[in-house]
């Protein structure tokens, strides 16, 4: 399966980005092979509105089954659910560390958004 993790940089050593819609990067990891690539989220950083929805679309295009991030608002969460992507909240440490927590089962699947909408 493929997992996306919001990240401040492009590698497994990068710090996790707690933001979803306006995260710097999405590091996408294939858990079977360990291969990974980084997807820039630059176009959403300055979006006037809808960054969460756009980010969810982008993650969905990577055909991931799970997303690990710090915070997720209601519109992003709804979009991720529609895409069939499971959401896990994990905010501590590097991408590699969070991935390990995910493998160990210490991150639990989110049932809802954990922050409010920025827009009405």
């Amino acid at each position: 399966m493929k997992v996306a993790i919001t990240s401040q940089g492009k590698t497994l050593e990068s710090k996790v980005d707690t933001r979803f819609g306006r995260a710097g990067w999405f590091v996408v990891i294939d858990t079977n092979t360990g291969d990974y690539n980084a997807v820039s989220n630059e176009q959403n950083l300055n979006a006037k509105q809808g960054a969460g929805i756009q980010a969810a679309e982008q993650v969905s295009r990577q055909e991931v089954s799970a997303l690990i991030t710090g915070n997720c608002g209601p519109k992003a969460f709804r979009t991720l659910m529609a895409a069939g992507i499971k959401v896990y909240y994990g905010t501590e440490g590097t991408v590699a560390e969070v991935l390990e927590q995910f493998h160990n089962g210490t991150l639990s699947e989110a049932s809802d958004a954990n922050v409010d909408s920025h827009w009405v």
Partner: peptide, 18 residues
């Protein structure tokens, strides 16, 4: 231009207040 409608996977979502 406002992410008020988006096709995701096999469905189309609308966000009225956007």
């Amino acid at each position: 231009q406002y992410s008020a409608i988006v096709k995701i996977s096999k469905t189309v979502l609308t966000f009225d207040n956007m």
